[in-house]
Design a protein around this nucleic acid. Structure first.
Lengths: 163, 163
DNA sequence: AGTCTTGTTGATATATACTATCATTCACGT
DNA sequence: ACGTGAATGATAGTATATATCAACAAGACT
Protein backbone atom coordinates (compact mmCIF):
# COMPACT_ATOMS: atom_id res chain seq x y z
CA UNK A 1 0.00 0.00 0.00
CA UNK A 2 1.26 3.49 -0.79
CA UNK A 3 2.28 5.92 1.95
CA UNK A 4 -0.41 8.30 0.85
CA UNK A 5 -3.11 5.69 1.15
CA UNK A 6 -1.69 4.28 4.38
CA UNK A 7 -1.70 7.76 5.86
CA UNK A 8 -5.37 8.20 5.16
CA UNK A 9 -6.61 4.72 5.74
CA UNK A 10 -7.60 5.24 9.38
CA UNK A 11 -9.85 8.16 8.58
CA UNK A 12 -11.62 6.69 5.56
CA UNK A 13 -14.73 4.56 5.57
CA UNK A 14 -14.27 1.02 4.38
CA UNK A 15 -15.78 1.38 0.92
CA UNK A 16 -13.34 4.14 0.06
CA UNK A 17 -10.39 2.08 1.22
CA UNK A 18 -11.63 -0.90 -0.77
CA UNK A 19 -11.98 1.18 -3.91
CA UNK A 20 -8.65 2.93 -3.39
CA UNK A 21 -6.84 -0.35 -2.86
CA UNK A 22 -8.26 -1.79 -6.03
CA UNK A 23 -7.29 1.33 -7.94
CA UNK A 24 -3.75 1.08 -6.55
CA UNK A 25 -3.61 -2.67 -7.18
CA UNK A 26 -4.43 -2.03 -10.81
CA UNK A 27 -1.41 0.26 -11.03
CA UNK A 28 -3.21 3.59 -10.89
CA UNK A 29 -2.23 6.33 -8.49
CA UNK A 30 -4.43 7.22 -5.59
CA UNK A 31 -4.43 10.98 -5.80
CA UNK A 32 -6.25 13.58 -3.75
CA UNK A 33 -8.84 14.39 -6.44
CA UNK A 34 -9.38 10.71 -7.14
CA UNK A 35 -9.93 10.02 -3.45
CA UNK A 36 -12.46 12.83 -3.28
CA UNK A 37 -14.43 11.20 -6.08
CA UNK A 38 -14.18 7.83 -4.37
CA UNK A 39 -15.56 9.40 -1.19
CA UNK A 40 -18.44 10.89 -3.16
CA UNK A 41 -19.17 7.54 -4.76
CA UNK A 42 -18.89 5.72 -1.45
CA UNK A 43 -21.50 8.12 -0.08
CA UNK A 44 -23.87 6.69 -2.69
CA UNK A 45 -22.75 3.10 -2.12
CA UNK A 46 -26.28 1.91 -1.45
CA UNK A 47 -27.83 3.94 -4.22
CA UNK A 48 -27.06 5.26 -7.66
CA UNK A 49 -25.40 8.46 -8.78
CA UNK A 50 -24.87 10.66 -11.79
CA UNK A 51 -21.67 12.49 -12.60
CA UNK A 52 -23.52 15.73 -11.97
CA UNK A 53 -24.44 14.56 -8.48
CA UNK A 54 -20.84 13.64 -7.74
CA UNK A 55 -19.81 17.07 -8.94
CA UNK A 56 -22.27 18.75 -6.57
CA UNK A 57 -21.13 16.51 -3.73
CA UNK A 58 -17.45 17.40 -4.06
CA UNK A 59 -18.18 21.07 -4.65
CA UNK A 60 -20.40 21.23 -1.57
CA UNK A 61 -17.39 20.07 0.44
CA UNK A 62 -15.13 22.58 -1.24
CA UNK A 63 -13.04 19.86 -2.84
CA UNK A 64 -10.95 20.33 -5.91
CA UNK A 65 -11.79 17.77 -8.58
CA UNK A 66 -12.98 19.35 -11.78
CA UNK A 67 -15.64 17.80 -13.98
CA UNK A 68 -13.05 16.24 -16.25
CA UNK A 69 -11.44 14.37 -13.38
CA UNK A 70 -14.77 13.16 -12.10
CA UNK A 71 -15.62 11.76 -15.51
CA UNK A 72 -12.14 10.29 -15.74
CA UNK A 73 -12.45 8.61 -12.36
CA UNK A 74 -15.87 7.18 -13.14
CA UNK A 75 -14.57 5.89 -16.44
CA UNK A 76 -11.55 4.34 -14.72
CA UNK A 77 -13.75 2.62 -12.17
CA UNK A 78 -15.94 1.34 -14.99
CA UNK A 79 -12.95 -0.18 -16.77
CA UNK A 80 -11.93 -1.78 -13.47
CA UNK A 81 -15.46 -3.14 -13.14
CA UNK A 82 -15.90 -1.37 -9.83
CA UNK A 83 -18.65 0.88 -11.16
CA UNK A 84 -21.19 0.27 -13.85
CA UNK A 85 -23.65 2.27 -15.87
CA UNK A 86 -27.33 1.92 -15.09
CA UNK A 87 -29.64 1.74 -18.05
CA UNK A 88 -32.79 3.63 -17.18
CA UNK A 89 -36.08 3.84 -19.04
CA UNK A 90 -35.42 7.32 -20.36
CA UNK A 91 -31.74 7.97 -19.75
CA UNK A 92 -28.59 5.99 -19.22
CA UNK A 93 -26.61 8.57 -17.29
CA UNK A 94 -26.54 7.03 -13.85
CA UNK A 95 -23.96 4.74 -12.32
CA UNK A 96 -23.60 2.50 -9.31
CA UNK A 97 -21.04 0.40 -7.53
CA UNK A 98 -20.81 -2.98 -9.20
CA UNK A 99 -22.45 -5.95 -7.66
CA UNK A 100 -19.86 -8.62 -6.92
CA UNK A 101 -21.53 -11.38 -8.85
CA UNK A 102 -23.44 -11.38 -12.11
CA UNK A 103 -25.85 -8.67 -11.10
CA UNK A 104 -28.81 -6.60 -12.13
CA UNK A 105 -30.58 -3.56 -10.76
CA UNK A 106 -33.95 -2.61 -9.44
CA UNK A 107 -34.06 1.17 -9.28
CA UNK A 108 -36.58 3.59 -7.85
CA UNK A 109 -37.64 5.96 -10.62
CA UNK A 110 -38.37 8.62 -8.03
CA UNK A 111 -35.31 8.78 -5.76
CA UNK A 112 -32.69 6.58 -7.39
CA UNK A 113 -32.64 4.03 -4.56
CA UNK A 114 -31.14 0.78 -5.70
CA UNK A 115 -31.59 -2.89 -5.02
CA UNK A 116 -29.43 -5.52 -6.63
CA UNK A 117 -30.38 -9.01 -7.58
CA UNK A 118 -28.65 -11.86 -9.31
CA UNK A 119 -31.17 -14.37 -10.42
CA UNK A 120 -32.87 -12.85 -13.44
CA UNK A 121 -34.16 -16.17 -14.67
CA UNK A 122 -33.22 -15.44 -18.24
CA UNK A 123 -30.83 -18.29 -18.97
CA UNK A 124 -33.50 -20.63 -20.36
CA UNK A 125 -34.88 -17.88 -22.59
CA UNK A 126 -31.37 -17.02 -23.76
CA UNK A 127 -30.53 -20.61 -24.65
CA UNK A 128 -33.85 -20.98 -26.43
CA UNK A 129 -33.26 -17.83 -28.46
CA UNK A 130 -29.76 -18.91 -29.44
CA UNK A 131 -31.16 -22.12 -30.88
CA UNK A 132 -34.08 -20.34 -32.50
CA UNK A 133 -32.26 -17.38 -34.09
CA UNK A 134 -28.71 -18.56 -34.63
CA UNK A 135 -27.42 -15.53 -32.72
CA UNK A 136 -24.40 -16.00 -30.47
CA UNK A 137 -25.57 -14.18 -27.36
CA UNK A 138 -22.73 -12.68 -25.36
CA UNK A 139 -24.37 -10.18 -23.03
CA UNK A 140 -27.69 -9.35 -21.51
CA UNK A 141 -29.08 -6.28 -19.89
CA UNK A 142 -31.82 -6.45 -17.31
CA UNK A 143 -33.21 -3.51 -15.41
CA UNK A 144 -36.26 -3.26 -13.24
CA UNK A 145 -37.90 0.03 -12.37
CA UNK A 146 -40.56 1.11 -9.97
CA UNK A 147 -41.04 2.80 -6.62
CA UNK A 148 -39.08 1.97 -3.51
CA UNK A 149 -41.07 1.38 -0.30
CA UNK A 150 -40.35 4.94 0.91
CA UNK A 151 -41.62 6.53 -2.26
CA UNK A 152 -44.65 4.24 -2.33
CA UNK A 153 -45.51 5.45 1.19
CA UNK A 154 -44.92 9.07 0.16
CA UNK A 155 -47.43 8.59 -2.66
CA UNK A 156 -44.98 9.35 -5.45
CA UNK A 157 -46.30 9.11 -9.01
CA UNK A 158 -45.09 5.86 -10.49
CA UNK A 159 -43.83 7.15 -13.86
CA UNK A 160 -42.28 9.06 -15.50
CA UNK A 161 -39.52 9.80 -13.08
CA UNK A 162 -35.81 9.93 -12.68
CA UNK A 163 -34.26 6.88 -14.19
CA UNK B 1 -57.33 9.81 -45.00
CA UNK B 2 -55.89 13.13 -46.19
CA UNK B 3 -55.59 14.00 -49.86
CA UNK B 4 -51.83 14.23 -49.51
CA UNK B 5 -51.55 10.79 -48.03
CA UNK B 6 -54.10 9.31 -50.45
CA UNK B 7 -52.09 10.72 -53.34
CA UNK B 8 -48.94 8.98 -52.19
CA UNK B 9 -50.37 5.76 -50.88
CA UNK B 10 -50.01 3.84 -54.11
CA UNK B 11 -46.29 4.50 -54.35
CA UNK B 12 -45.37 3.80 -50.71
CA UNK B 13 -44.42 0.46 -49.20
CA UNK B 14 -46.76 -0.86 -46.58
CA UNK B 15 -44.76 0.00 -43.48
CA UNK B 16 -44.62 3.66 -44.46
CA UNK B 17 -48.37 3.75 -45.05
CA UNK B 18 -48.98 2.08 -41.70
CA UNK B 19 -46.81 4.59 -39.92
CA UNK B 20 -48.27 7.55 -41.81
CA UNK B 21 -51.81 6.45 -41.06
CA UNK B 22 -51.07 6.17 -37.38
CA UNK B 23 -49.43 9.58 -37.37
CA UNK B 24 -52.49 11.05 -39.10
CA UNK B 25 -54.88 9.14 -36.84
CA UNK B 26 -53.19 10.73 -33.84
CA UNK B 27 -53.94 14.15 -35.29
CA UNK B 28 -50.49 14.97 -36.65
CA UNK B 29 -49.91 16.13 -40.19
CA UNK B 30 -48.26 13.91 -42.72
CA UNK B 31 -45.81 16.30 -44.29
CA UNK B 32 -43.17 15.77 -46.93
CA UNK B 33 -40.19 15.83 -44.53
CA UNK B 34 -42.02 13.59 -42.09
CA UNK B 35 -42.75 11.09 -44.84
CA UNK B 36 -39.11 11.11 -45.84
CA UNK B 37 -38.15 10.16 -42.29
CA UNK B 38 -40.82 7.47 -42.24
CA UNK B 39 -39.40 6.05 -45.45
CA UNK B 40 -35.93 6.01 -43.94
CA UNK B 41 -37.22 4.26 -40.84
CA UNK B 42 -39.21 1.78 -42.91
CA UNK B 43 -36.00 0.93 -44.74
CA UNK B 44 -34.67 -0.25 -41.36
CA UNK B 45 -37.89 -1.99 -40.39
CA UNK B 46 -36.16 -5.29 -39.75
CA UNK B 47 -33.18 -3.76 -38.03
CA UNK B 48 -32.24 -0.84 -35.81
CA UNK B 49 -31.22 2.69 -36.66
CA UNK B 50 -29.63 5.78 -35.19
CA UNK B 51 -30.69 9.32 -35.95
CA UNK B 52 -27.37 9.83 -37.66
CA UNK B 53 -28.07 6.88 -39.97
CA UNK B 54 -31.50 8.28 -40.83
CA UNK B 55 -29.84 11.61 -41.60
CA UNK B 56 -27.38 9.93 -43.98
CA UNK B 57 -30.20 7.98 -45.59
CA UNK B 58 -32.33 11.03 -46.40
CA UNK B 59 -29.32 13.07 -47.46
CA UNK B 60 -28.16 10.32 -49.81
CA UNK B 61 -31.52 10.59 -51.53
CA UNK B 62 -31.29 14.36 -51.68
CA UNK B 63 -34.28 14.79 -49.41
CA UNK B 64 -34.96 17.84 -47.36
CA UNK B 65 -35.45 17.02 -43.69
CA UNK B 66 -32.94 18.70 -41.44
CA UNK B 67 -31.52 17.06 -38.35
CA UNK B 68 -34.01 18.83 -36.11
CA UNK B 69 -36.95 17.40 -38.02
CA UNK B 70 -35.50 13.91 -37.95
CA UNK B 71 -35.10 14.10 -34.19
CA UNK B 72 -38.61 15.53 -33.91
CA UNK B 73 -40.10 12.76 -36.01
CA UNK B 74 -38.30 10.05 -34.06
CA UNK B 75 -39.51 11.62 -30.81
CA UNK B 76 -43.05 11.83 -32.16
CA UNK B 77 -43.02 8.19 -33.14
CA UNK B 78 -41.66 7.33 -29.70
CA UNK B 79 -44.53 9.14 -27.99
CA UNK B 80 -46.93 7.29 -30.29
CA UNK B 81 -45.23 4.03 -29.30
CA UNK B 82 -44.40 3.30 -32.90
CA UNK B 83 -40.66 3.53 -32.30
CA UNK B 84 -38.63 2.79 -29.21
CA UNK B 85 -35.15 3.39 -27.95
CA UNK B 86 -32.79 0.45 -27.75
CA UNK B 87 -30.65 0.25 -24.66
CA UNK B 88 -27.25 -0.99 -25.69
CA UNK B 89 -24.35 -2.08 -23.53
CA UNK B 90 -22.37 1.09 -24.16
CA UNK B 91 -24.79 3.55 -25.69
CA UNK B 92 -28.51 4.12 -25.89
CA UNK B 93 -28.66 6.01 -29.15
CA UNK B 94 -30.31 3.49 -31.41
CA UNK B 95 -34.00 3.02 -32.13
CA UNK B 96 -36.26 0.46 -33.73
CA UNK B 97 -39.87 0.01 -34.75
CA UNK B 98 -41.89 -1.11 -31.77
CA UNK B 99 -42.84 -4.70 -31.37
CA UNK B 100 -46.61 -5.00 -31.25
CA UNK B 101 -46.78 -6.90 -28.02
CA UNK B 102 -44.75 -6.64 -24.84
CA UNK B 103 -41.41 -6.97 -26.56
CA UNK B 104 -37.71 -7.11 -26.08
CA UNK B 105 -34.71 -7.03 -28.37
CA UNK B 106 -31.81 -9.18 -29.33
CA UNK B 107 -29.37 -7.02 -31.22
CA UNK B 108 -26.20 -7.79 -33.11
CA UNK B 109 -23.38 -5.72 -31.64
CA UNK B 110 -21.61 -5.76 -34.97
CA UNK B 111 -24.21 -4.79 -37.58
CA UNK B 112 -27.29 -3.69 -35.63
CA UNK B 113 -29.46 -6.55 -36.88
CA UNK B 114 -32.44 -7.05 -34.65
CA UNK B 115 -34.55 -9.93 -33.45
CA UNK B 116 -37.55 -9.43 -31.25
CA UNK B 117 -38.91 -11.72 -28.62
CA UNK B 118 -41.69 -11.58 -26.10
CA UNK B 119 -41.19 -14.21 -23.51
CA UNK B 120 -38.40 -12.95 -21.30
CA UNK B 121 -39.30 -15.27 -18.45
CA UNK B 122 -38.87 -12.53 -15.88
CA UNK B 123 -42.35 -12.44 -14.35
CA UNK B 124 -41.59 -14.92 -11.58
CA UNK B 125 -38.40 -13.07 -10.65
CA UNK B 126 -40.28 -9.75 -10.69
CA UNK B 127 -43.03 -11.02 -8.41
CA UNK B 128 -40.46 -12.52 -6.09
CA UNK B 129 -38.51 -9.26 -5.90
CA UNK B 130 -41.65 -7.24 -5.19
CA UNK B 131 -42.38 -9.43 -2.19
CA UNK B 132 -38.78 -9.44 -1.07
CA UNK B 133 -37.96 -5.73 -1.42
CA UNK B 134 -41.26 -3.91 -1.05
CA UNK B 135 -40.64 -2.15 -4.36
CA UNK B 136 -43.60 -1.56 -6.64
CA UNK B 137 -42.15 -2.65 -9.97
CA UNK B 138 -43.69 -0.86 -12.92
CA UNK B 139 -41.31 -1.45 -15.79
CA UNK B 140 -38.58 -3.75 -16.89
CA UNK B 141 -35.88 -3.51 -19.47
CA UNK B 142 -34.40 -6.55 -21.12
CA UNK B 143 -31.84 -6.49 -23.86
CA UNK B 144 -29.78 -9.29 -25.31
CA UNK B 145 -26.62 -8.69 -27.32
CA UNK B 146 -24.40 -10.84 -29.41
CA UNK B 147 -23.58 -11.67 -32.99
CA UNK B 148 -26.14 -12.42 -35.65
CA UNK B 149 -25.61 -15.53 -37.80
CA UNK B 150 -24.12 -13.45 -40.64
CA UNK B 151 -21.57 -11.79 -38.40
CA UNK B 152 -20.74 -15.10 -36.72
CA UNK B 153 -20.01 -16.54 -40.16
CA UNK B 154 -17.95 -13.47 -41.07
CA UNK B 155 -15.85 -14.05 -37.96
CA UNK B 156 -16.67 -10.71 -36.33
CA UNK B 157 -15.18 -10.03 -32.89
CA UNK B 158 -17.86 -10.58 -30.33
CA UNK B 159 -17.38 -7.47 -28.20
CA UNK B 160 -17.00 -4.54 -27.94
CA UNK B 161 -19.05 -3.46 -30.87
CA UNK B 162 -21.78 -1.18 -31.96
CA UNK B 163 -24.61 -1.35 -29.52
C1' DA C 1 -60.11 26.73 -56.31
C1' DG C 2 -58.93 30.30 -52.81
C1' DT C 3 -58.20 31.48 -48.11
C1' DC C 4 -57.34 30.74 -43.17
C1' DT C 5 -55.48 28.58 -39.28
C1' DT C 6 -52.41 26.16 -37.02
C1' DG C 7 -49.09 22.66 -36.94
C1' DT C 8 -44.51 21.98 -39.01
C1' DT C 9 -39.96 23.24 -40.87
C1' DG C 10 -35.16 24.74 -41.14
C1' DA C 11 -31.59 27.44 -39.24
C1' DT C 12 -29.58 28.44 -35.32
C1' DA C 13 -28.61 28.58 -30.57
C1' DT C 14 -28.52 26.04 -26.49
C1' DA C 15 -28.29 22.04 -23.20
C1' DT C 16 -26.20 17.93 -21.59
C1' DA C 17 -22.90 14.21 -21.48
C1' DC C 18 -18.61 13.21 -22.36
C1' DT C 19 -13.66 13.28 -24.57
C1' DA C 20 -9.25 15.50 -26.29
C1' DT C 21 -5.44 18.58 -25.60
C1' DC C 22 -1.73 20.30 -23.12
C1' DA C 23 1.01 22.73 -19.84
C1' DT C 24 1.50 22.12 -14.92
C1' DT C 25 1.57 19.32 -10.81
C1' DC C 26 2.20 15.57 -7.79
C1' DA C 27 2.18 10.44 -6.24
C1' DC C 28 5.19 6.89 -5.67
C1' DG C 29 9.39 3.96 -6.36
C1' DT C 30 14.02 4.49 -5.73
C1' DA D 1 14.95 14.01 -1.32
C1' DC D 2 14.57 13.15 -6.26
C1' DG D 3 13.04 11.96 -10.85
C1' DT D 4 9.66 10.24 -13.80
C1' DG D 5 5.57 9.46 -15.64
C1' DA D 6 0.90 9.50 -14.60
C1' DA D 7 -2.83 12.67 -13.19
C1' DT D 8 -4.88 17.26 -12.99
C1' DG D 9 -7.44 21.50 -14.29
C1' DA D 10 -8.78 24.60 -17.77
C1' DT D 11 -10.48 24.72 -21.93
C1' DA D 12 -11.99 23.47 -26.34
C1' DG D 13 -14.26 20.09 -28.93
C1' DT D 14 -17.69 16.26 -30.14
C1' DA D 15 -22.12 13.84 -30.03
C1' DT D 16 -26.87 13.58 -28.97
C1' DA D 17 -30.78 16.06 -28.36
C1' DT D 18 -33.94 20.16 -27.37
C1' DA D 19 -35.54 25.30 -27.56
C1' DT D 20 -36.54 29.31 -30.29
C1' DC D 21 -38.67 31.67 -33.92
C1' DA D 22 -39.71 33.51 -38.40
C1' DA D 23 -41.34 31.40 -42.67
C1' DC D 24 -44.04 27.90 -44.67
C1' DA D 25 -47.52 24.56 -45.95
C1' DA D 26 -51.20 20.77 -44.82
C1' DG D 27 -55.73 20.33 -44.19
C1' DA D 28 -60.28 22.49 -43.22
C1' DC D 29 -63.65 25.58 -44.58
C1' DT D 30 -66.06 27.88 -47.66
Amino acid sequence: MSRYLALRRAMLPTTVVDLAEQVAAAGYKVTGPRLAVLRAIAACAESSFSVHELEQWVQARGESPGVASIFRTVRLLCTLNLVERIHGIEDCHRYCLTNERHGHHLMCTQCGALERFNNCGMQPAIRHLERQTGFQITAHLVGLFGLCPNCVRAGAPSLPGRT
